[in-house]
């Protein structure tokens, strides 16, 4: 589809293939993951708030090579066509053109639209929208570098929850999310892009650790129930770890302000 409002290049371009034998053949071995992790460990995560000064709240999350930024604007007055006694949560998910293997177009494709919907479904149960009548909270997620699409979605949900907390929007809990990949009966936490190519299914869980409540689950692939339950338990533990990093990051910003004042 011709995007008339941008500088367009040639109509069609492809990612080049690799020379045979130039790459050490990658085979997935759960005992020996490429980055040295165990199958039940998530990538070390780095978080920071207040990165977009123009936004009411913002956060940046890095997990391995994955890099996600989120900005929250609001509460702002809702557009005229919609009136509501409850606040409206509006989520927007976008991959930057340079974030993946193939260059992405600026126009949203179906994956981005689906992820935007998942973002809203995962975050809305935790936000106290009843306190914001006639207002809209806009959440914008921009992925700078992606490494595993399910892990990317989970990181986006976590980053957005962090940004919402940074914006001072009242929430029941800071939602944490994580992803698993299924490799037949083996469950691997936080799969990278390379590992994802070998998986037979995936699951992304969004969870509120303090209340022990799940806000959203999305699973794909053909999996047995016992494996799913095991995966959910793994995710719940990982989400608790992620949330403690979130809490530390949020508390650190206040400590800085108090000490700096």
């Amino acid at each position: 589809m011709a995007d008339r409002k941008r500088v367009t290049g040639p109509e069609k371009s492809v990612v080049p293939l690799l020379e045979p034998g130039s790459l050490s053949a990658f085979t997935f071995d759960p005992e020996k993951r490429k980055d040295g992790r165990n199958i039940d460990r998530i990538r070390p995560v780095f978080m920071k708030t207040g990165v977009v000064r123009q936004a009411n709240g913002s956060a940046y999350l890095e997990a391995g090579k994955l890099k996600v930024a989120c900005g929250v604007y609001g509460p702002r007055q809702t557009a005229r066509s919609k009136i509501s006694s409850r606040g409206i949560l509006n989520c927007d998910f976008k991959f930057s053109p340079f974030s993946g293997g193939r260059r992405r177009a600026y126009i949203k494709d179906s994956q981005e639209k689906e992820y935007s919907l998942v973002l809203r479904q995962a975050l809305a149960p935790a936000v106290r929208l009843d306190l914001l009548p006639k207002s809209t909270v806009d959440v914008f997620v921009q992925v700078l570098e992606s490494d595993g699409s399910a892990a990317c979605l989970a990181a986006a949900i976590t980053c957005a929850a962090l940004a919402l907390a940074d914006a001072g929007i009242e929430m029941l809990d800071a939602v944490a999310a994580c992803a698993v990949g299924y490799f037949d009966s083996t469950i691997c936490l936080d799969p990278t892009d390379e590992e994802e190519t070998y998986q037979s299914g995936s699951l992304v869980l969004s969870y509120m650790p303090s209340l022990n409540e799940v806000t959203h689950v999305i699973q794909s692939g053909e999996i047995g129930t016992t494996t799913t339950i095991k995966a959910l338990e793994l995710c719940v533990d990982a989400c608790a770890q992620i949330q403690s990093v979130m809490q530390q990051t949020l508390a650190a910003t206040i400590k800085e302000k108090i000490n700096g004042a």
């Binding site: 290049g9 069609k12 492809v14 990612v15 080049p16 053109p97 340079f98 700078l144």
Partner: peptide, 11 residues
């Protein structure tokens, strides 16, 4: 601002 340059093949 962040700039990312991706190289692909075309005719």
């Amino acid at each position: 601002v962040v700039c990312g340059i991706k190289a692909e093949i075309t005719e």
